[in-house]
């Protein structure tokens, strides 16, 4: 969500790991000895947080004497999205605090068709909200507050619209909207509205380009920003125009979640993929395209 120091977050992860794991076993109604593999998020992400998770995973796998499966976080988002929406071969728009990626499967891997060249959309919204003095609460993240304010916006303020090929840049947009905020000539509602309209149009444009290019028949929206109704409406429009099915991943599985790591781990394990302990180091910048998605049917 931005603004949390990685080290503090890691300390928290380490502290709650034990409880979280035993609660997960309880809720699933199984015993540790029933587990077949330990899947963990190996990257990309923040080093200290990933390491806390990887350490817990190594401990468990050694203790239970079952294999480790290192999972790519972005792959996991896509796979759980496909599972819960029953999408088979979608163009995925994955938009969160740290990612803005347009991806589709081709020749054995999830290819990145477009992504941000600087900061992610969720991060942009969060920085803007914080600059505006908004406060997020549990269950009401910055993005949801901005969405609510945007509904009251009436007047569009023109902001930099930056699409390069199928890539995007949000930093110019963010700088401009923060500057307008500081000079106080526009209402916060109008700025939220203009920020959303501009940024989401950019995201929709590159998704449509990828859709036209690949001629896929499904559009999958996931990640925290995917909860936004306006973004959903824009994507539904292009999906409809290209006769594709529009699928939104429910929040429970669109935000970072353990189930997605487990599921991606199972898919990989069924193809015989495991991660030896000596190769279980975390990969901070592990690219989606570097993963051979052997479990996906071509």
């Amino acid at each position: 969500m931005g603004g949390i120091h990685p080290r503090e977050a890691a300390r928290h992860h380490a502290k709650v790991a034990g409880d979280t794991i035993s609660r997960a076993f309880q809720e699933a109604g199984i015993k540790p000895k029933d587990a077949t593999i330990i899947a963990f998020s190996q990257g990309p992400g923040l080093g200290p947080c990933l390491r806390a998770g990887a350490t817990a995973a190594r401990t468990l796998s050694t203790y239970l004497n079952i294999p480790l499966v290192g999972v790519n976080h972005c792959v996991a988002h896509i796979e759980i999205g496909k599972l819960v929406t029953d999408a088979k071969d979608p163009i995925t728009l994955y938009v969160s605090g740290g990612n803005s990626i347009v991806s589709a499967f081709d020749a054995g891997r999830y290819r990145i068709f477009g992504e941000t060249l600087d900061i992610a959309i969720g991060n942009s919204i969060d920085v803007f909200a914080r600059e505006a003095g908004l406060h997020q609460q549990k269950g009401l993240p910055f993005g949801a507050i901005v969405e609510r304010l945007a509904k009251e916006g009436k007047e569009l303020v023109h902001l930099p619209y930056s699409v390069k090929g199928m890539d995007l840049s949000f930093s110019g947009l963010l700088t401009a909207v923060v500057r307008l905020l500081k000079n106080g000539k526009h209402s916060l509602e109008d700025l939220c509205y203009s920020l959303q309209e501009t940024a989401f149009s950019m995201l929709t444009e590159v998704t449509e380009r990828a859709l036209a290019h690949t001629e896929k028949k499904e559009v999958l929206l996931t990640g925290g920003v995917g909860a936004n109704k306006r973004l959903q409406a824009m994507l539904a429009t292009i999906a409809d125009e290209h006769e594709s099915r529009f699928c939104v991943v429910p929040k429970q599985y669109a935000l970072d979640n353990g189930a997605m790591i487990a599921w991606a781990g199972i898919l990989a394990y069924k193809q015989g993929i495991t991660t030896p302990v000596e190769e279980s180091f975390v990969r901070l910048k592990w690219r989606l395209e570097d993963v051979k998605a052997l479990w996906v049917e071509p």
């Binding site: 990612n99 600059e131 609460q137």
Partner: peptide, 23 residues
């Protein structure tokens, strides 16, 4: 382009609620 390089504001004193930790 991933989580590691988020842009932050100067006085970044966000409340560390559970929600933000998990994600």
């Amino acid at each position: 382009r991933y989580v590691s390089e988020r842009r932050k504001t100067k006085n970044d004193k966000e409340v560390l609620n559970n929600n933000s930790f998990i994600h």
